[in-house]
Every structure is written in structure tokens, then in C-alpha cells.
Write a protein that binds this DNA or RNA. Sequence first.
DNA 1: TCTGTATTTAACCTATCAGTTATTTAACCT
DNA 2: AGGTTAAATAACTGATAGGTTAAATACAGA
Lengths: 125, 125
Amino acid sequence: MSPAPDRLVPDHLSATLSALADPTRRAILARLAQGPAPVGSLAAPLGLSLPAASKHLTVLERAGLVSRHRRAQWRDCRLEAAPLRELAGWLQTYRRFWDDSMERLHAYLEQLQPQPDTDQNHRGA
Amino acid sequence: MSPAPDRLVPDHLSATLSALADPTRRAILARLAQGPAPVGSLAAPLGLSLPAASKHLTVLERAGLVSRHRRAQWRDCRLEAAPLRELAGWLQTYRRFWDDSMERLHAYLEQLQPQPDTDQNHRGA
DNA sequence: TCTGTATTTAACCTATCAGTTATTTAACCT
DNA sequence: AGGTTAAATAACTGATAGGTTAAATACAGA
């Protein structure tokens, strides 16, 4: 099922999530959603130094979220959405937890699994 | 629009993503998806010490992904999905990047934005 | 080939993270 | 009250993240 293109990093999802956890990197992605751009033009509007930008891009690249291609002396960065799709897939697993009302969910769980692991003698209600 | 329950941490999305970036914490969530559980019964199957588990739970709690409730001498942990819903919302904005074939997407971008910023012509100025 | 531009890499600094052991707090049960 | 269990907190440690400045690399153009 999983195409598992794990050539970049061992744990795909962890790499994706930790790459996305940085707001600067999300800003870079947002910018790239408008189309490919060279490093300099990503760095400037974010007030990033070139080395900082380059490092962020390396993180994004290792997570498979961005690819870089030489074009003359520039390096065009492009958004690669595959890891986002994978993330969406993972998230999907939890969808039922917010899709219906929370109340229903919890009620469902209560009856599905009367006691998780602890004994329920204290369960007055 | 945004309910903005930012009482826990400044940047919601960053907190959510960095909480989720740790595979141990994702395992905790997966376990909680089966129903609430006390800390000890989360720690044991993961080979986690109690302090380690407690710290992970604090991270998850600060991200709003988990709530803890005292019950006798135990502390029941429960999955809270709101941040996941928010994450799904964010992800949604990138959906078009993987929904259609990538080819179409790139073609679309090319015509939308003929030249990102790379302007080989501006150096003449 | 020399020069300027774009970007990366190296070396370093500080803060945060995930884990540890030891101690403390909280609630239960006699 | 005393003892036990559940969990949190404190204090410490090694690894990693994000930033810096300075040097190196890659390409383009005269």
C-alpha cells in the first residue's frame, strides 16, 4: 500500500511534521504554492538571511516537500506535495473524532470500551 | 471564524505540528483513539518511563491534543481532536497540489505565473 | 580569465528537546 | 496517621534546531 519512498529520511511522517512545525518553513511553502522561486526571492520577503533560508530549504527538501533545480546561477525551488498527501492520509484516520459532534464520539467510546485499562469500580457515574 | 483558543500556546499550528512530529506522541494518540487511558497504561506498552510519558502528555496537552482528568489517583488522558481538525483545514489549502495529477498542476502554475521572480532581464536595469 | 551574483557549507553559539534519576504531590486504603 | 500507588516535578545530560558570520562553490558575462 505505502509506496514508502523512504530514500530521504527514515520516518517520513515525522520528517514531514517537523519540517512543517516551523512557521518560517510554512511561509516558504505558502510562497511556493504560488509557483517556483529561487532561494533569494524566498528569503527576502521573510527577512531571512540566505544561509538560514538555505537550511530551511534543506529541511524541506529532506522531507520531500520541496525540490531544487539549478537554473543558470539560481536554484529554483518547487513545492512537492506528496508528503502533504501522506499527511492528509494519516490525518484521515482521526477524522471521525471531529467529524461528528464530540459528544457522540465520546459516548460511542464509552460504550465501545467501558474501561480502557483501569478498573472501573470508582466509576460512580 | 477562528475560535482562536490560543490560551495554551501562541502559535496553534506550530504547536500541533511539533507535538505530532514525535512518533512516540503519535503512538500515544493512536492509543487514545481507542479510548481514554491513564498515564501508566500509555507508558508501559511504549516502553516509556512515567516521567517521559508525563512530559509527552504535557506537550500534547499544551497543543490541545489531549486533556487530563483526575480520577481517583489516576489521571485519565483523552484525545482532543480540535487541533487535528485545524490541521486538516490548513492542509486543505494545499489539496489541489496532489488532487489532480501533478502534471496538470505544474502546467497550471507555469501559465499562471510565467516567471516567478527569476527575472534574468532585471539585471540589466 | 577575471568579476560579480546566487547559493551552499563550515564553524560556532544558544535554546530547546527527549530522556534520565531522585524527589514530591495527590489520592486511595487500612 | 501510615503505607502504597499514580503521576508530576526538579535537576541534570546529550543531541538537535535555528540562527549567526565568514569562507567556499557554481555559474554567467564581459
